[in-house]
Design a protein around this nucleic acid. Structure first.
Length: 176
DNA sequence: ACTATTCCGGTAA
DNA sequence: TTACCGGAATAGT
């Protein structure tokens, strides 16, 4: 497995850690997570260089133009069948638009709660735009955090709002 | 027994 | 009339 660290322009601290590995003779993303003050690991193999460039390039594209569509391959097999179905649906929400958990649930013939669950388990934040799903009454959650509860030292909700603002997405905010 | 939800009824201003 | 709780319903892990 190879892991790369890139900065993420919300503040100086925030970074994105992206890992990938070979699966069935191809390189696939195996995870994306937010972190702070981590150093890039040096264990990357030379034949991974072009893939690393592709990752960094697509991220730069998205950051300079929010309508850019990622084409990075993600290993969906790391999720359950249901999660794969939800994640696939997430990729079909265009930049600049949002959907509520309830609306997405209706499309997939399941429940809002279950959709929220699958979003929380999204292994590829930013690349798979789970931030484009909001609650009927406000912004909803992100990475396990909600408006009421922040679990760790990273303010994930702020990140979600930053992403939505970057994409110029509007959502009903009746509470926060 | 947990959730990154939602809907509806009751109550008070 | 609107606004704010409280609780039940809900589906997947």
């Amino acid at each position: 497995m190879t892991k790369i660290i890139t900065s993420f322009p919300i503040d100086k601290q925030l970074q994105l850690s992206i890992s990938f590995s070979a699966a069935e003779d191809k390189l696939l993303l195996s995870g994306v997570r937010y972190c702070q003050n981590e150093r890039e690991s040096i264990n990357s193999e030379p034949n991974h260089d072009s893939f690393i460039q592709k990752i960094k390039n697509e991220l730069e594209c998205y950051l300079s133009d929010a309508s850019f569509q990622f084409s990075l391959p993600c290993n969906f097999q790391l999720g359950t069948l249901f999660q794969q179905k939800v994640w696939q649906a997430l990729t079909e929400i265009p930049s600049g638009e949002v959907k509520t958990y309830g609306a997405l649930a209706k499309e997939l013939d399941t429940s809002a709660r279950a959709v929220g669950n699958a979003c929380r388990r999204n292994l590829f934040p930013v690349i798979i735009p789970c931030h484009r799903v909001v609650s009927a009454s406000g912004v909803g959650g992100y990475a396990g955090d909600t408006l009421d509860v922040q679990k760790g030292d990273i303010n994930f909700l702020r990140i979600k709002q930053w992403l939505l603002a970057h994409e110029a997405a509007l959502y009903e905010k009746r509470k926060g």
